[in-house]
């Protein structure tokens, strides 16, 4: 498939020579990059922490402070978890069909599987 890419991506910005795709930075080879952290936020007491996004920080404390500034400027959270992204393990989306398949044919795990008389109350 031969794909033509439109030149203008975000409104008025031309697309040619405007990437950011190669993995290694050139200008500051001596600078050590801060690791990436995944941020989870509990929006209020009683709710689960939910993934909010990611950010760079030198250590865990900075990650939490930055997360406060980046993700909770409008009281969006009462508790923050920061996990270094390299420590996250994920299931493989390519295996999803086979991986979750056993759940498909076990419909008797759902309450709607059971046909019960109308007169039966409180169940």
């Amino acid at each position: 498939m031969n794909i033509e890419i439109r030149r203008y991506f975000y409104g008025d910005i031309p697309g040619d020579e405007a990437g950011g795709n190669s993995a290694a930075p050139k200008n500051a080879p001596n600078e050590k990059a801060w690791p990436l952290w995944e941020i989870f936020i509990r929006s209020k007491q009683g709710l689960d922490h939910k993934h909010a996004g990611s950010l760079h920080a030198a250590d865990a404390r900075m990650a939490i402070e930055n997360a406060r500034d980046v993700y909770t400027r409008r009281m969006e959270g009462v508790s923050i978890w920061a996990v270094e992204s390299k420590n996250i393990h994920a299931s493989n989306p390519d295996d999803a069909a086979a991986f979750y398949e056993p759940a498909q044919d076990k419909i008797y795990r759902h309450p709607t599987f059971y046909d019960l008389p109308e007169e039966l109350k409180h169940m």
């Binding site: 020579e17 405007a18 990437g19 950011g20 795709n21 930075p25 200008n27 500051a28």
Partner: peptide, 16 residues
């Protein structure tokens, strides 16, 4: 994409 590369591209004028 690497964050440093994106910043470099902005600062060098390569990225728009």
């Amino acid at each position: 994409a690497a964050r440093e590369t994106m910043i470099d591209d902005l600062n060098s004028g390569k990225a728009k």
